[in-house]
């Protein structure tokens, strides 16, 4: 019994779970410890004069949650909302939440931490949101650095 407990702790240290989303036909992974919730698209109320990458705010069970478009944040073309579009609610800065719009949520994957490669310096720009690249079969999964999502916002 104690053997089992030790083995579980070891594997937890080596692997992390990621929520796999797709944006612009690419796969992105969000560390599941940051994920509060995944919801369908609600009505978004626009916030005038807010940074460009914010779509507005929503009412999540009586709390106001700002919603960011990751496509706008990464300078991709703007979201086209479909029935697969979801908002992933993230816990950030201790007790704050933001929601990010993704094209779809696929699954939760365990990725061993030592298989995640850091992007080559060539690809890594100052304002990159990507911490590393994980692999699942043939697919590459870009792992978000949640803390940098809110950095350098105009």
């Amino acid at each position: 019994m104690s053997d089992l407990a030790i083995r579980e702790m070891n594997s937890a240290a080596e692997e992390k779970q990621y929520v796999i989303c797709n944006i612009n036909k690419e796969y992105y992974g969000i560390d599941i410890t940051h994920v509060n919730n995944i919801i369908q698209m609600p009505k978004i109320t626009m916030v005038p004069k807010a940074p460009e990458c914010f779509k507005g705010i929503i009412n999540l069970r009586g709390e106001i949650v700002p919603i960011m478009s990751l496509r706008r944040r990464m300078n991709l073309e703007d979201d086209t909302l479909t029935k697969d579009s979801r908002i992933v609610i993230l816990n950030i800065n201790d007790d704050e939440m933001i929601g990010v719009v993704v094209d779809g949520v696929k699954e939760v994957l365990s990725i061993p931490t030592d298989t995640i490669e850091t992007p080559a310096d060539l690809l890594k720009s100052e304002d990159s949101l990507i911490r590393g690249i994980g692999k699942k079969n043939e697919d590459l999964i870009s792992i978000f650095e949640i803390d940098s999502i809110l950095k350098n916002i105009a």
């Binding site: 916030v47 106001i64 700002p66 939440m97």
Partner: peptide
């Protein structure tokens, strides 16, 4: 008035309010 979280540095709005079916800035 509910705080706007990470958007609370917006100088034109002090918060948002939850109405029966909508949000108002």
């Amino acid at each position: 008035s509910k705080p706007l979280g990470v958007l609370s540095n917006n100088r034109f709005f002090s918060g948002a309010s939850i109405l029966s079916d909508d949000l108002a800035m």
